[in-house]
Design a protein around this nucleic acid. Structure first.
Lengths: 170, 170
DNA sequence: CAAATCACTTGCAAACCACAAGTGAATTTT
DNA sequence: AAAATTCACTTGTGGTTTGCAAGTGATTTG
């Protein structure tokens, strides 16, 4: 059988945190939202090659459940009828504050590849970062808010990683 | 076999959001953290009966992995040698902002049992709520920050639910 | 029009989770 | 001072979910 949408065996208490976790309590959903929110990804292929190694059936399943939850919407590309553009809804972009806090927590307490300077900037300018995130969403601006950093190698890695992907997104 | 700690098949990119999700990308971990953070729960039994229906093997597994991640610490109760008190570490309580934003998102966009007045208060007084949360943590004050609301029944439910549990926690 | 691309689906094995039933140590009850 | 209870688990047993590999069908490109 194909992978179906994941859902808890039974709906739990009406606690808000609970309700969130019923939607995002898995390893992939929030990652896809991150890809849409800060990296500007929109297509199945972009998510697939985002570097984390999600498999196609799970990706399809998660995109479905996120749509069902009203967090993501989908529409066909006008220029290429094969392609579908996934995009956060208003409800989806409203997750930005939670996402930001999660990011800041990990940057502070775990070893991550996030450039320190940027993290500090985000920490001291939450509102500005959120406003910019929302602006890019509203204007459908697919420019990544920060380049997709891979493992930290040399200090040139952050500067060069920009242009490798996305040669032709339309 | 017993349930072992869950972990992704392979470590993924160093993205901070990713790193967070490797720890909390399941339906239970954040819920336990919530119980410790806002409800003041500390023992295995309290988590077990928190109303969401976690099973004992999974609960034991999650408490282990949260300890391994440095988010939770454990120590024996001095008064009762059977009992173990689990408690958030500094790293654990630092998740409070993310937890709050997740809660506010769900309260705004999903149907939850959270009393509206309280949500509004939290929304407009984030810093105060966080300060209070941290204070209760620092002083080991187990008083719930808000009573455990079950499904909304009558308007008396929020007022009365306080005293049912915890008759004797020392 | 053949080859490539895109967004998936299908099948299968392995991992994971829920449920029920213990286990052993400490504490309370009788 | 047994006996019963509480506490924090472990073990075994399915059923569900996941990860991986290999298609499939509809465009689009060369």
């Amino acid at each position: 059988m194909a992978a179906k949408s994941p859902k808890g065996p039974q709906p739990r208490s009406g606690c808000p945190v609970c309700v969130s976790l019923e939607q995002f309590g898995d390893r992939w959903s929030l990652l896809l939202i991150r890809d849409m929110m800060v990296r500007g990804y929109r297509t199945f292929g972009e998510f697939l090659n985002s570097g984390e190694g999600i498999s196609t059936n799970i990706l399809a399943s998660r995109l479905r459940s996120l749509q069902k939850a009203g967090v993501v919407s989908a529409e066909r590309d006008e220029a290429d009828a094969r392609s579908i553009h996934y995009r956060l809804t208003e409800k989806g972009i409203a997750l930005a504050p939670a996402m930001l806090e999660l990011l800041l927590w990990a940057a502070r307490w775990e070893q991550t590849a996030a450039p320190c300077g940027f993290v500090e900037h985000m920490e001291q300018n939450r509102a500005g970062v959120l406003a910019e995130t929302r602006r890019r969403w509203a204007e459908r601006d697919p420019t990544p808010i920060l380049p997709p950093f891979k493992k930290p190698q040399t200090k040139t890695s952050t500067a060069s990683a920009q242009s490798t992907r996305r040669k032709k997104t339309r």
